[in-house]
């Protein structure tokens, strides 16, 4: 893994945390920096629910131009900030990087 990729992933993770905190009502009092990269997003982790997943799908589209085409991937992609960031990194259009 190159250093460049790690830096890009870190940048995406930070941006995702800020986006989630500023757009999901349930997290609005949370400090983005307090969210761990590997913290589980739904259920027992951050406590997000299925309707928050809808918001995240829209956030990925609007801010990264990333569309989850095969929703069967959702279970793995929506697991944590880190898995989300890796999916964004792999699927973000070149001009958005």
């Amino acid at each position: 893994m190159t250093v460049g990729k790690e830096e890009e992933l870190a940048s995406i993770r930070e941006k995702l945390k800020v986006l989630l905190v500023s757009n999901l009502a349930f997290l609005d009092e949370l400090d983005p920096a307090s969210i761990k990269d590997d913290e589980i997003l739904f259920g027992e982790g951050l406590g997000l629910d299925s309707l928050d997943a809808v918001e995240i799908v829209v956030l990925l589209q609007r801010h990264f131009d990333v569309h989850i085409k095969d929703m069967k991937e959702g279970r793995a992609v929506f697991y944590s900030i880190d898995t989300l960031a890796r999916y964004v990194h792999e699927n973000i259009p070149k001009d958005k990087q």
Binding site: I68, M71, G74, R75, F78
Partner: peptide, 11 residues
């Protein structure tokens, strides 16, 4: 199902 099926609905 997973996340209440909302991802499948969106797709």
């Amino acid at each position: 199902g997973h996340l209440g099926g909302v991802l499948e609905m969106m797709q």
